[in-house]
Structure formats: C-alpha cells, structure tokens
Design a protein around this nucleic acid. Structure first.
Length: 574
RNA sequence: CGGGGCGUAGCGUAGUGGCUAGCGCGCCUGCUUUGGGAGCAGGAGACCGGAGGUUCGAAUCCUCUCGCCCCGACCA
C-alpha cells in the first residue's frame, strides 16, 4: 500500500520549462521522472512502479511464448563489435570509453553480437534449434538530438529478443511467434497501435514490421489505408503504376522556355504558349545527387519533392548521399542547372533512377539540357532509359493504396516495437554455425525483436492523458485504486485505511492519501494528476454511511454504501 | 552539425535605464482552516551556469566557454 503521507513524491503545480510534449510535462509534474541530463532520466517511486508494471507485462508475455530470459552487461568490449564492423558503422551514436589500460569499451546500443556469441558458446547442433532468447536491458545511444522527454533518450530500457533457426522457414515461424507475442503484449498494455511494414534499414535482413502507437507527438510518419488496412512506414510505402502505350505520342520537341528554372515558372510559360492545360504533374523533375562519389539522377513528377529518407531507404548499400551543388555543375558543363533532362544521361554516365510514377511509355515535359530550353513529349523507354525504379517521391495524403487503390491517410506515431528477420549477417560475421543432419556446418539464421519499455511509459501516457493529468490503464497504473480521506476527524482516515486493507487483501493495489495536513482540493488535484483509474473518496458522504467512487477516465461519480465499497471497486476493475 | 530560444532558490519566474536580487509555488515555526491546489504572522533557502574582460561599481555591457529546449540534418 502506497501511503501519500510517506511516499517519496512532490507534485509540481507548474509545467516544467524544459518539457514540451504532454508525456514529459505530466510525468515530471506528477513526480514520476526527473531529468538528469539531455535524454537521461531518473525514475521516482511512482514512475518506477509504472515502469516495472510494463516490464512485468512484457516479461510475462515473452515467457508465455516460450522465450528465455538472459541478461548481458551494458559495458561491453570492442572486439565483437569490431568483427561485425559495427564499431565503425555505428559511428558517433556509440558511447565509447576506455579502461585504465587504454582498452576500448562501449555501452551497448543493442546486443546482436552478444546474443550470437552466447548461443555459439553453448550450442552446436541443429537439434538445439529453434531457440529464442531475450533480455530487458538498459541501452545507450548517443543520439544526435535526444528529444520529447523519455520518448527518445540516450539511455533507455529495451526488451530485445533474438531467434535462432536453421532454415528460412524456421525463421518465418519464429518471426510469427514473436509477432503474436507482441500483439498480446501491446493489447495488455492498453496501447492503440498499427502494425506497419517497414524497411529493415541499417540492420540488414528481409521482412520487417513496426508497431506504431499513433499520437500527435510521434516522430514516425506512416501511411494507412482505412479501406483495406494496408499500413506502411512512409519509407516502405510502395507505388505501382502500369506502363502505358506510347505509340501515338508525337516525337520529342525542343521548345524555347526562357527564364523557367523552376517547375512553377515552367508551367506558367507552357500555359501561355500552348493555351493552358499544363500542371506540375505533367513535368519531370530531375534531381541530381552524388551518391558515394557517383552522379545519379532521380526522376519524380514535377509536383512532388524527393523524400530523402525514402530515397536512402530504397538505395541500400549507398553510404553517403548529397545534393548536386553549383560547383558540381561547373565541372559538368553538359548539365544545365534548371534545365536538366534525362535524355543524355547514358552518354554522360549518369545512373537514372525513377519513381514508379514515371512508368514505361509515359510522356513528360522536361529540361532539354540547354539553357532556357525544355523538351516536350519525352517518353520513358523511347527517349531515355531508366536504370531502376525506386520509391523516392514524397508520399502525400490521398495517394493511392498499393493494395486497393483507395486514398491513404498519413499519420504520426511513436515506434514502440520493431520486429525483423535479420538473416545470417551476424551469424556469418561471428561464425555461429550448427551441425546439420548430414554432419555439415550450417550458418544459423536470426530474427531480432525489440520493445521500447521505457518508451512505452511515455507512449501510453501520450495516448491516455487528458486536461487534468495522467490517466493510466489499470494494468500499468501505480495503483489500481486511489483512496482519498478528507476531514479532520479520525473516522474518515480510519475508514479509508480499512477499505484500503480490504482491497489489498483481494489483490487490488491501493494508493492511500492519508495526509492530515493537505486540503481536500490538493488531494483531489493530486489524485487526478497521478492518474490511477479508480478514485475513492472517504469524507463528506460518510455521515450517510457512504463513500464516493469516481472513474478517472470518464469522470463518472457514484456514491455507494460503505459495506459495498470494496465489491463495487472490484466490479469496476473487472 | 545548421537555424532559433533560454540559463536568476527545489519548481515557475521578475529584474537587462549600472549601485542593498524581487515575487508565486513548495519548504520550516505558530495559530486558524479541511469537498476543489486554504488564511494570517514569522522564517530558512541564490557565490544570478562557468571563466575572463570593461568599469569606481556588473545578474545587467564585451569575449570565450559549458549546459538545456525547439526546428532541421541524423536516428533499431
């Protein structure tokens, strides 16, 4: 039983100056967390109870799925990360340190290497697989910009699991088992979420899905089709456009278009010249980029921008990408800024990438590679050849769903879980093999699965808070019932304590506001701010032998006879 | 790393027209008060982020530095 008279808690009346997002603001005000440094937080009793409730749910569901818990250090030696090249690849995001002898160490940002090595150390037969291990561990990433309180910190707690299988089919099964366990976990946590297809990104591997909790302060943007349920991270959103017949399209024609270096100016001049009918969507935008030192061109319809995140996600293997700059134009006189077209790309040795909307046979207005000139009727497949189609154009609200063509909506969300099939990258690098039936060594294939445990505290807060404070689902609230005793006599305080004890005897956790010196107003405000789901008030109504029961979420109030208080509360929580 | 904002008591802030640093919340003592962040009286708590400089005199002006927040870049 948490007694407010002794609980280590001081709520704040004012919003902290350095907190912007609701979860951060309220978690600080209600005395759950305190900031220590940018992206680094301490948990106070209420916060830590809430945190552990989430951790408990996660652990129970992992165990129920048959995964086994292990625990690694956060402080790790360099070598394993050297072997997988991540000592380099992780770059400045990795917290590095040295011991007294000058040896290199790191604070683990994620533990693929350690899990792989642990399995390698114990198992060596196909008979041992499949296997799934997990840990709940503090992770360290020196984020370029920690933000939004505990949503994106530099130190955070993550549950990470890894599956080990001999075959791709086995990996798929392990993946689906984890997916199912995640569904159960997030349902129990009371989170609203969408499962969206994602890019496996820097971790390598194939199939990948993210669990996204929609909320305004989310930093991930995703696409949802309300008709068929298609959901994807914008980076993974697919566009499909069928080829068209271009046999009737007139020949390419170069026209003078003075002073039209932008799509807007071009459209204006075209409409003056040809009596209207042109829009930005009829033009072809050629974005020149330098990818790992090589010039490439990305073609998108003139009414869309290139989304650099999508572009990079769809150009795997490219490490560094930057815009073509004035000095690059100076070195390549054949390329005229503002009048670039794809027609000469082949001769110039420029690799052409195109958004799928630039389908085979489609006809465009684009630059003529000559100052103040554009070309009309430039046909893909006839006048230029695309090397590769990639999703690079920005996604807009209302774009066609790739599955059912209905308009999609764009929403923001917090990433609370990510599951993906890693494949053999780490097993290969660290030589994790098992002997197969035929006695031959085979490289194990792995899956990787994460849940942001500390982040879930903030995500749930974001999805449930209201104007007066936090508002937790019963499963994770610091206590299921918040009992407030008011008045100056002993009776309400004694009665409140009796009810509290009776509830606890039934396994219902209680926070009891037994402060004698606080006014009723203060106690009510605190109860609302703290956000336990049921509030019981023992005070005024006691003269009629009654207590008041309030539901925090709805604000609904009822008075019940003292004798029924415990059963009524239990009923509300059922 | 680029742009913007900000560092004054545990929290929120005033003071930037140069001279004893002010207020609210919280905290301590006493009395009163107890169904919506109580009242009165008294009190503790700040080397004004740090270093250097200008000046008779700096929270205030100048230089440097550290830290924090927001937008962007970046980011399982």
């Amino acid at each position: 039983m948490l007694k407010m008279s002794t609980l280590f808690l001081r709520t704040l009346r004012d919003d902290p100056a350095d907190a912007e997002v609701a979860s951060h603001r309220l978690l600080v005000r209600a005395g759950y967390v305190r900031r220590i440094a940018a992206g680094i937080y301490s948990w106070l009793p209420l916060g830590y109870i809430t945190f552990r409730n989430i951790e408990r749910v996660v652990r129970e569901e992992m165990d129920a799925a048959g995964f086994q818990e292990v625990h690694f250090p956060s402080l790790l030696p360099r070598e394993p990360y050297e072997k997988t090249n991540r000592w380099q690849e992780y770059g400045p995001d990795l917290f590095r340190l040295q011991d007294r002898k000058g040896g290199d160490y790191l604070l683990g940002p994620t533990h693929e290497e350690m899990f792989t090595l642990m399995v390698k150390g114990e198992y060596s037969s196909y008979k041992d697989l499949p296997l799934s291990l997990y840990q709940i561990q503090t992770k360290y990433r020196d984020e370029p910009r920690p933000r939004s309180g505990i949503i994106r910190g530099r130190e955070f707690v993550m549950k990470d699991s890894y599956s080990f299988d001999l075959t791709d089919e086995g990996l798929s099964e392990s993946y689906m088992k984890h997916r199912a366990a995640y569904v159960k976990t997030f349902d129990r946590l009371g989170l609203k979420y969408n499962i969206v297809s994602a890019m496996s990104g820097a971790m390598g591997g194939s199939r990948s899905e993210e669990f996204l909790a929609p909320c305004e302060t989310g930093e991930d943007t995703y696409v949802l089709c309300e008709k068929c349920g298609y959901a994807a991270n914008v980076e993974a959103m697919k566009t499909t456009v069928d080829p068209v017949d271009s046999s009737a399209t007139p020949a390419l024609q170069v026209v003078d278009t003075p002073n039209t270096p932008t799509i807007d100016t071009l459209v204006e001049v075209l409409n003056e010249r040809f009596g209207g009918g042109f829009t930005g969507a009829d033009t072809l935008k050629n974005i020149l980029l330098v990818a790992d030192g090589k010039t490439i061109s990305v073609l998108v319809p003139g009414d869309r921008e290139v989304d650099m995140k999508r572009l990079e996600a769809n150009l795997p293997g490219v490490k560094e990408i930057r815009l073509f700059e004035d000095e690059d134009f100076a070195k390549n006189p054949a390329l005229v800024k503002g009048y670039v077209g794809p027609q000469d790309a082949k001769n110039l040795g420029i690799t052409l990438y195109a958004d799928p909307r630039i389908a085979l046979g489609t006809s465009w207005v684009t630059g003529a590679n000559k100052q103040n000139c554009h070309a009309l009727n430039v046909v893909n497949g006839r006048d230029f050849t695309v090397e590769k189609y990639i999703d690079a154009a920005e996604v807009k609200q209302g774009d066609a769903c790739p599955d059912c063509a209905a308009p999609v909506v764009i929403d923001r969300a917090i990433e609370i879980g990510h599951i993906f099939q890693l494949g053999r990258k780490y097993a290969q690098a660290l030589d994790l093999t098992v002997l197969d039936k035929d006695g031959k060594a085979r490289v194990v294939t792995m899956g990787s699965y994460g849940i942001g445990v500390s982040r879930a505290v903030a995500a749930i807060a974001e999805q449930t808070y209201d104007e007066i404070g936090l508002c937790w689902p019963a499963e994770i609230a610091p206590a299921k019932v918040h009992i407030v005793a008011t008045g100056k006599e002993d009776l309400p305080f004694d009665t409140a304590e009796e009810i509290a004890t009776a509830l606890e005897n039934q396994g219902i956790s209680v926070m009891l506001d037994d402060r004698r010196d606080a006014s009723p107003g203060v106690k009510f405000k605190d109860a609302e701010l703290i956000g336990n789901p049921i509030i019981v008030i023992v005070g005024k109504a006691l003269v009629d032998g009654k207590v008041e029961i309030r539901v925090r979420r709805t604000g609904e109030k009822t008075e019940v006879a003292l004798a029924d208080a415990v059963s009524e509360v239990a009923k509300l929580l059922a």
